[in-house]
Nucleic acid binder design. Structure first.
Length: 263
DNA sequence: ATGGTCGTTGCACGA
């Protein structure tokens, strides 16, 4: 495959696009992703900096609500048939957590799965229902035989290799059997966790708490995932979690995750 | 054992 014939797709929970814009600019100029899924823009649609991306050669679609949540897809390889929220025909999710569009023949969703907070919390039930709706969305929106990507912050560590100290997380959200089963149910529609498909390594995290020097102590979780259908998986050359982006001045608490796909 | 930091907003709360 000759140079330049790859599609570079990335996902990044930026924890406020406004606060992160200098870091996003630096990262885009360095990495030049073809498609970038953003989560936690914390922006209204009106305030979303579409011109900032247009100036750098990107089209963009945003589904935001303002103070919280907010997801976007930016692309320099086409951006067609956007769908905000779930396509399952049920009343829309009141929170802005999902947007879908077609980029370079890929049906791409940017997903921000609810945090869950704790196992007794209403938000935990909402999280499990949200994952069930994600599968229903895929069933309504596309087919597993297509080139499908669901990338984002899942707030679920798929297995114990994805948690720095599993013993500390017994009884906590992000690792519960029900959450992991909900992820497997979405995957069983026809998606694979591309990082885990390619690599067996543990201690490869994508999120580290801002507090208590968690990043420097290597105390994180791998909760930012790129799920791909078989057609995408077969084109996946490598997946990288860009830890560099978690360093330096005013980082997000999440690193970007990127995949290069053979064309 | 607890809290520890950010981002939002507005002087608390979500992650």
């Amino acid at each position: 495959m000759e140079y330049g014939s790859l599609v570079r797709l990335a996902t990044w929970n930026v924890n406020s696009l406004k606060a992160r814009l200098p870091r996003v600019e630096e990262w885009i100029d360095d990495i030049r992703p073809d498609v970038l899924c953003l989560q936690e823009t914390k922006s209204t649609d009106d305030a979303f900096p579409s011109q900032f991306f247009a100036d750098r050669g990107y089209e963009s679609v945003h589904h935001g609500q303002g103070q919280w949540n907010g997801v976007a897809i930016i692309s320099r390889v086409g951006l067609e048939d956007p769908v905000a929220n779930f396509a399952d025909g049920l009343p829309p999710d009141p929170e802005a957590r999902l947007i879908t569009a077609t980029c370079a023949g890929l049906r791409v969703s940017s997903a921000y799965v609810p945090n869950g907070r704790d196992l007794e919390n209403d938000h935990y039930r909402y999280k499990l229902e949200w994952m069930a709706r994600l599968r229903a969305h895929l069933e309504a929106d596309t087919r597993p035989e297509a080139a499908v990507v669901v990338a984002g912050d899942f707030n679920i560590a798929p297995d114990d290799r994805d948690v720095h100290d599993p013993a500390k997380f017994v009884g906590a959200t992000h690792v519960s059997t029900a959450e992991r089963d909900a992820l497997r149910s979405v995957e069983s529609w026809g998606l694979s966790d591309l990082f885990r498909y390619l690599y067996e390594e543990d201690r490869m995290y994508s999120w580290w708490d801002y507090r208590a020097g968690a990043f420097n102590k290597g105390e994180g979780m791998r909760i930012d995932l790129i799920l791909g259908s078989e057609a995408v998986r077969n084109r996946s050359r490598w997946v990288i979690i860009d830890r560099q982006a978690r360093k330096g001045d005013k980082p997000s608490d999440h690193s970007p995750v990127l995949v290069d796909l053979d064309e």
